[in-house]
């Protein structure tokens, strides 16, 4: 079985500063991985490097996505191959409607797969169906993308886009930050509904709270640019109870 994502000895940084100091991670089809860690440990850098954000420079290691060299692809190619990043801070784009943006996006992915563009009626009914997953109102479709949306609406819109694009690998970058408990439940419900045996999810989060709703198969702790501990979902509970200090202490001893 080919893993969906195979990261080997990945090192990366921004300008001169190295942030990821050798990440190795395998994500297989059907799995949900949680990546936890204190602030500044490199969680969001990992998400950015996977999505292809230009600010970051990869200095070593490899990332294979469905057997292909991910690092060799432009951000749009990654998306077309089935990578999806749910942004921690979704961008507001006045003047671009959510519906038209998604139509372009969905059809770019379809074109890549050799499919015809979706007919307008089919597209509309698909949107309506997927909006229900995240309990979004249809009025959002005619509004400008994220423009004037509340924090919760923006995050729901991310999951709605994910539902429309049906990615092979979804990376949720602190999707839970700034969400109240109802929004958290809605967002997690959307993610769970999209889980399948052929796709995978990486949930990046600071808190265990989201993992009550999206139950992970594997939990990794990222600290100082390395994965210092991996375990089952009970690891997340232990982190919730004990904080990160004991991990920091242990990894300092090991180093």
């Amino acid at each position: 079985m080919t893993p969906i994502l195979q990261i080997t000895d990945l090192t990366a940084g921004i300008e001169e500063r190295e942030i990821l100091k050798g990440i190795t991670l395998t994500v297989n089809p059907g799995e949900v991985h949680a990546i936890m860690g204190p602030n500044g440990s490199g969680k969001s850098t990992l998400a950015s490097v996977l999505a292809g954000r230009a600010d970051y420079t990869v200095t070593g290691g490899t990332v294979s996505f469905m057997g292909k060299d991910l690092l060799d692809m432009a951000p749009e190619e990654r998306a077309r191959e089935g990578m999806f990043l749910a942004f921690q801070y979704p961008v507001e784009i006045p003047g671009v409607s959510t519906a038209n943006f998604l139509k372009t996006s969905v059809n770019e992915l379809r074109k890549h797969r050799g499919q015809e563009p979706l007919a307008p009626a089919a597209f509309l009914s698909l949107m309506r169906e997927r909006m229900k997953l995240v309990e979004m109102d249809q009025s959002f479709l005619s509004r400008s993308l994220n423009d004037g949306f509340s924090g919760g609406e923006k995050k729901r819109n991310e999951i709605f886009q994910m539902a429309m694009l049906e990615p092979v690998l979804a990376v949720l970058d602190e999707t839970d930050s700034g969400l109240d408990i109802d929004a958290l439940r809605i967002v997690a419900g959307g993610v769970n509904a999209l889980r399948s045996s052929s796709t995978a999810t990486i949930v990046i989060t600071h808190y265990q709270r989201l993992l009550d709703y999206i139950v992970p198969d594997v939990v990794h702790v990222l600290w100082n640019g390395r994965i210092v501990r991996s375990g089952g979902k009970e690891l997340a509970l232990e982190l919730e109870k004990r904080g990160y200090d004991w991990i920091k202490a242990e990894s300092a001893v090991e180093a």
Binding site: R53, E76, A79, P90, F101, S105, S144
Partner: peptide, 21 residues
């Protein structure tokens, strides 16, 4: 970058942003 991460190529994303402006 946001638009590109949704599969829209860089040129098109730029054109879209300028247009939307």
């Amino acid at each position: 970058f946001y638009l590109r991460s949704r599969g829209i190529d860089a040129d098109k994303a730029r054109a879209l942003m300028t247009y939307a402006f």
